[in-house]
Computed example of a mutant assay.
Amino acid sequence: MSDPSFTPILQFGTSRFLQAHADLFISQALDKGQALGKVTVVQTTDNPDSARRVQALASGAGYPVRIQGMQDGQVIDQQHWSSSIQTALHADRDWQRIRQAMTREVQVVISNTGDKGYLPDAADTPASLASDAPAPVGFPAKLLVLLHDRWQANPYAPLSLFPCELVSRNGDVLRDLIIALAQDWQLQTAFASYLRETCRWANSLVDRIVSQPIEPVGAVAEPYAIWAIERQHGLLLPCTHPCMVVTDELEQYEQFKLFMLNLGHSWLAERWLVDQRPGAETVYQAMNDPLLRQSLEDLWEQEVLPVFAAKGQGAQARDYLASVRERFLNPFLEHRIADIAQHHEQKKRRRFLPVLQMAEAGLEQPKLNAALHR
């Protein structure tokens, strides 16, 4: 029997990011009749902070999202109310209910399971597929059991999955992970075909800085937000929203973020380390230091933008850079450079080296070269 209280959107993860990103988008789309419906949130871990959020979200009363920052040269300080989450469940406690709903009501799955969310757990085995089995430990096994239930109930039932983890081509990565786990469990080849051909795994890029929580639930976030989703036949969106972009050029969005926003952060961290700048310095403070600001502007102008111009993306890159500049100049955000500087050498290699490799012959990039080899 269907669960009339269940929603067409199932979300794994209770993060403040999703509250101020996808969940807020869905809430605003619902107000305009442009969303599939409301969201059921599932807590997948025993994290006590997540448990408190689940308790606060379970009533469906909604929560505040405060938007603070710069947009089009104007200071923004607004409060919104998000009402897209109908209820919140815990996987261990409500597993049977979630399994039943997955066979019928759910049309879209959203996930944001953290840095280790894709790691399988050795404790998970095919015994989890039994009808009375408790929830598996790891997220991959949880998702596999739910998809297997759905396939058994209706092997032709489509499903669109939107992983929001910060992994390049996250949809492909999660799909391949689930198929590999199904093979490890020696499940039917027809089920693997269902995962590969009937389910739609969206590759996407999410971006919005969520600066602090509002207790017990809610968040403070910057005005800038994007959910760039790679176009795919048969993909069912949870909603339509001005901050959602369906594109054939997802790689361009990834490169813009990595090689302008992230690269800019790492350049400030490089100067912070080399020049032994104040320990508590923030991005906003750094951007208001004329010499440091000019070094970053010169880096963008002389060593990064020409790389995109050579690819025919110069105008789009400049538009994106204008948004990055406003984000760095957000007077409300205390983004400490010391935090950005963690794992600095690895970040430099990921953010600086590809820009050098992408550059056409003849383009001088002395700042990036010096920083990379320092």
Rank of each mutant, 00 (worst) to 15 (best):
A180E: 14
L174H: 05
L166P: 00
C164Y: 08
A141N: 03
L166Y: 00
L177K: 14
R169N: 15
L177Y: 02
H148I: 03
F162C: 13
L166F: 04
C164A: 07
H148V: 03
H148T: 05
L147P: 13
L166R: 05
I179W: 09
N154R: 05
L177H: 12
I178T: 15
L159N: 09
A180Y: 08
D172Q: 15
L146R: 09
P163H: 08
F162M: 14
Y156V: 11
R150P: 00
L166A: 09
P155Y: 00
P140Q: 06
R175N: 13
C164K: 05
L174E: 07
I179H: 11
V167G: 00
L174N: 05
P163K: 06
L174Q: 12
R169A: 15
L143Q: 11
R150Y: 01
P158F: 07
L146T: 07
A157Q: 14
L146A: 04
R169W: 15
N154Q: 08
D172L: 13
R150W: 03
L159F: 04
S168Q: 14
P140L: 07
A153H: 15
R175M: 13
F162T: 11
P158A: 04
Q152K: 11
P163C: 08
V173Q: 15
D176I: 08
A153R: 12
R175Q: 15
G171D: 09
I178E: 12
G171H: 10
R175L: 11
Q152Y: 00
A141W: 03
S168G: 11
P163M: 06
W151G: 03
L147F: 10
P140T: 07
V173G: 03
N154L: 00
A141F: 03
